[in-house]
Design a protein around this nucleic acid. Structure first.
Lengths: 145, 145
DNA sequence: CACATTTATCATATCATCATGAAGAAAACA
DNA sequence: TGTTTTCTTCATGATGATATGATAAATGTG
């Protein structure tokens, strides 16, 4: 929170793939056009998601990208963690190099730790399947922590 | 969450000033040296904090920067909001341009809204005074929300 | 095999953030 | 008034994220 543009592109692209999973491989061009995202830049991102084991790619006619795993097994961290490391979110607000939880944690640090931990959990526990569009009136399915 | 380096410098500098508030104006050089932060860069940041009404500056011998208000009245948003706008933190994880809460909010979006709102509240409600170093064993003084 | 299609890769450009260095301007004070 | 101290301002550079364009490599199909 928030995501880099790269991480956001990655997430939106994977979401798009999850929504069209039964239509075979999707071309970068199609995704880029649908999402209004620079083609070659997205290409590079998808390639990295391939190396991260999130996507599978195939070249030539009828080629493109496909989810490497069912969307129920893909967490948000799987997708954006490589571009926006979750560890960065746990650092002290003040940039203190580790004095927060050990040395002299002030009240605000405690509260901050709780907050950042919640955000990290969100990325770790939310799956792509849960992000797919629901009918209006959808209710929360995630429990706290 | 997290802060830009600029925002972090601003926060640490103000915290430093709050800790030395009874010693009169503090020079940029002193702050920069204490925090190990580039002098001229910090100078620019402090100047902007001055224009934002957070600090007061005076030139010449015995000059420097002073808090413009008591630390109890300075929120974290007052300090970092100008460099890291809180509004940015409330955007949809997917970069959807406003479809989140209106159109078809999915369960994850609801949870995300709660989380980002909590983070925003943290910045709005925490004061500099609350960030001052406490003895180890300090307990949380902030309430949820 | 030849060709069209598609991803993979590379070289470069752009932009914002972060940082450095030097000169300008105000204020205190002898 | 002159000098020192300090913030203020401007010009420039470094770095990483973002973006673009061209070319290479792989693959299916006739």
């Amino acid at each position: 929170m928030m995501l880099s543009r790269t991480g956001e592109y990655a997430l939106r692209a994977v979401l798009h793939l999850a929504q069209h999973v039964d239509e075979g491989p999707t071309r970068v061009d199609d995704i880029a056009q649908t999402l209004s995202v620079p083609r070659n830049y997205l290409s590079k991102i998808l390639h990295e998601l391939g190396r991260a084991g999130v996507l599978t790619s195939s070249r030539g006619p009828r080629g493109g990208f496909v989810l490497a795993r069912p969307s129920e097994e893909l967490t948000l961290e799987d997708i954006v963690g490589h571009f926006d490391p979750l560890d960065d979110r746990r650092r002290c607000v003040l940039g203190r190099e580790g004095g927060c939880n050990d040395d002299a944690p002030c009240a605000a640090h405690v509260r901050w730790s709780e907050l950042s931990q919640s955000v990290v959990s969100f990325f770790r526990k939310t799956t792509v399947a849960q992000l797919l569009v629901h009918p209006a009136g959808a209710e929360a399915v995630m429990s706290e922590e």
